[in-house]
Nucleic acid binder design. Structure first.
Length: 490
RNA sequence: GGCCCCUUAGCUCAAUUGGCAGAGCAAUUGACUCUUAAUCAAUAGGUUGAAGGUUCGAUUCCUUCAGGGGUCACCA
């Protein structure tokens, strides 16, 4: 609001008139609030008075209670709150004048001694108050915090100042990614960075974002997946490799989808999809050990135990069971078409057989996969990069891990036969001609790499944002992405 | 993109059937040297998201637009 902005600018001028530097360069902090609290919370008022431990702390003023010649304030350091107490006769004349000019939102340093108030709250009796930065805007209300989701996402810093839980989610995210990295480093994986801009988008079925490089005068696509580049590294002999980075998909936004999202992809030579299902279980349990009190995900109103081995169900069996369709019908395009026309009359008829399968899977199966479940042996038609099953040539050695109705991971025995890979790409090209504009494109450079010989390998991708949702109990992907995509305002 | 819902003071929310736009917090002024949702007294703060329409009269009803949320589709 205009008026408050003006008033606060006037206060800044008054500070300068007192000889206070309004934007000093540094402040020597001796303890974070959590350290002060941990060190002294168990001691009683008498002990604290005897010792008079000296601290220098800093934070944002989030509450002011003035008693006239003494002022209580709560400071917030990004994680914790700490009360400080300024008395007129306890600080210098100038510091007292500064205290009177403070607004909620200002940032200050406080040097003094730790004590306990009459009501037992650990506080700092201030001897020296240092002004560190001015806030010209009022903070959201103290009781209810900031409710407006739009403001929370557009001005995430306000969310973080007022709703400490928001920050906690992102600390968890950081710890989770750190734990994932350590997991793979401990197993001898090499972390790499492959291009974010691809001349041919590949590695996943999705619409890409397009951009243009001026000097080369070529269109480039923001990557939808790093897969085809990571496999080139397998050809090069990198035995274990992973990448944690952003993917970009030009698709809709929902509780589970943001156009840019973080993914880990990892690959290991001489392994197959079965090894990677085991590895996924190990990883999730290790993350639970790191982030949860026990191996139980608490998400929304659900309790989801992580108890290996996770349930395993074949993709086609899952659809057959939930739809009531016979397995033979699922393998027959005409029968599928008839079923969809009759049972799902409001759905537009998918252009390809693979899209029909997708439709039935998401309609009948997906939401019901709450407990951790590996869906296995995806049909060849929708798995252009995975190896054919040893058991049934219509299927592939591919799995997806579902938890809480969300797809969390996707892995397979990597197709390494270049002639077969070329045929799969050609089948995708035919799907594209039939109207599936997410069908994968032929990447000649990738085929050439395979032609040089790639050892058998397993590969997998895990959606990090969704994993954070599960481990932090977040209902929306927007709650685990600091700045989710919103339509720009004005 | 389709459908449904929301948008009122800086923030959180009210406003009876269409009849004078309010409260708490925040802010301003004053009192107060252990408060913590501090307290007490006073003051100020509004183009009710925007533009039209109906009406004597619109926060309220209608249309269009903008932003957001939910949902469906696509996707992870």
């Amino acid at each position: 609001m205009e008026e408050q902005f003006v008033v606060r600018q006037e206060k800044l001028k008054k500070l300068e008139a007192l000889g206070v530097a309004p934007y000093p360069y540094r402040y020597e902090v001796s303890h974070r609030f959590a350290e002060v609290i941990a060190a002294h919370k168990e001691r009683d008022a008498e002990q604290l008075q005897r010792d008079a431990a000296a601290v220098r702390v800093a934070g944002r003023v989030v509450a002011i209670r003035s008693m006239g010649k003494s002022v209580f304030m709560h400071l917030f350091d990004g994680s914790d709150r700490l009360q400080v107490y300024v008395r007129k006769d306890g600080v210098g004349e100038r510091d007292w004048a500064v205290t009177g000019l403070l607004d909620i939102g200002d940032i200050v340093g406080a040097a003094g001694t730790v004590f306990k108030t009459r009501t037992g709250e650990l506080s700092v009796l201030v001897q020296e108050l240092t002004f560190l930065a001015k806030s010209f805007h009022p903070l959201p209300e103290k009781w209810h915090g900031l409710q407006d989701k739009e403001v929370r996402f557009r001005q995430r810093y306000l969310d973080m100042i007022v709703n400490p839980d928001a920050t906690e989610v992102f600390r968890k995210r950081s710890r989770l990614i750190q734990a994932v990295r350590r997991f793979f480093h401990e197993r001898g994986y090499v972390e790499v960075e492959t291009p974010m801009m691809h001349p041919i988008p590949g590695g996943a079925s999705a619409r890409p974002f397009v951009t243009h490089h001026n000097a080369l005068d070529i269109d480039l696509y923001l990557r939808v997946a790093p897969e085809l580049y990571l496999k080139r590294l397998l050809v090069g002999g990198m035995e274990k490799v992973f990448e944690i980075n952003r993917n970009f998909r030009n698709e809709g936004i929902s509780l589970m989808h943001n156009p840019e999202f973080t993914m880990i992809e990892f690959y290991e030579l001489y392994r197959d999809f079965s090894d990677y299902m085991d590895l996924s279980e190990t990883l999730l349990l290790e993350l639970a050990g790191e982030l949860l009190p026990d191996a139980v995900l608490r998400w929304q109103d659900k309790e989801i135990p992580l108890r290996p081995p996770f349930r395993r169900v074949k993709y086609m069996d899952a659809i057959a069971e939930k739809s009531g369709l016979a397995l033979e019908a699922l393998w027959d395009e005409a029968a599928m078409r008839a079923h969809i026309a009759k049972a799902l009359p409001n759905e537009p008829m998918p252009p390809t057989y693979g899209k029909m399968l997708d439709l039935l899977f998401s309609h009948y199966v997906e939401d019901g996969l709450v407990e951790p479940t590996f869906v296995t042996y995806f049909p060849k038609a929708i798995s252009p990069l995975s190896k054919v099953s040893r058991l049934d040539e219509r299927e592939t050695e591919r799995f997806e891990l579902y938890i809480a109705g969300m797809e969390i991971a996707n892995g397979f025995s990597e197709l390494n036969d270049p002639l077969e890979q070329r045929r799969r790409f050609e089948a995708q090209a035919r799907d594209r001609e039939r109207g599936d504009d997410e069908a994968q494109r032929i990447d000649g450079g990738f085929l050439t790499a395979l032609e040089h010989g790639m050892a058998p390998a397993a590969g997998e991708g895990i959606g990090i944002d969704r994993l954070v949702m599960l481990f932090a109990g977040a209902a929306s992907i927007k709650d685990v992405i600091l700045f989710p995509l919103l339509r720009p305002k004005e």
